[in-house]
């Protein structure tokens, strides 16, 4: 199986798996779910890291901007989700 077909397989299966997982999340947690999922979409940082070292200045600067944006997405997303969930679990 070539890479593209494999990729499409994984894409479709992950969409279905995602739907199953998300539909079990209660409304109470929808905001943390959204910001947490958002942080996961920052996985594009992997591509950004590859892009940031490739050689020519133009390509590197594009890659650098991609790393900055993806890192904001990842770090900010996980941190703010944790901040919210900490409030949910607080002992009273």
């Amino acid at each position: 199986m070539n890479g593209l077909l494999m990729g499409i397989y994984l894409f479709v299966l992950a969409l279905l798996l995602g739907s199953e997982l998300i539909s079990k999340v209660p409304p109470t947690l929808h905001t943390p779910l959204m910001s947490g999922a958002n942080a996961v979409s920052g996985i594009t940082i992997v591509g950004a890291l590859w892009a940031a070292h490739s050689g020519s200045p133009a390509s590197n600067i594009l890659g650098f901007l991609a790393v900055v944006m993806a890192t904001i997405n990842v770090v900010g997303g996980f941190a703010v989700t944790d901040r919210m969930l900490k409030m949910f679990g607080r002992k009273r």
């Binding site: 998300i22 779910l33 999922a37 996961v40």
Partner: peptide, 10 residues
Amino acid sequence: IISGALVGAS
């Protein structure tokens, strides 16, 4: 591909 699809579904 996998992680993006998970977020896409959510």
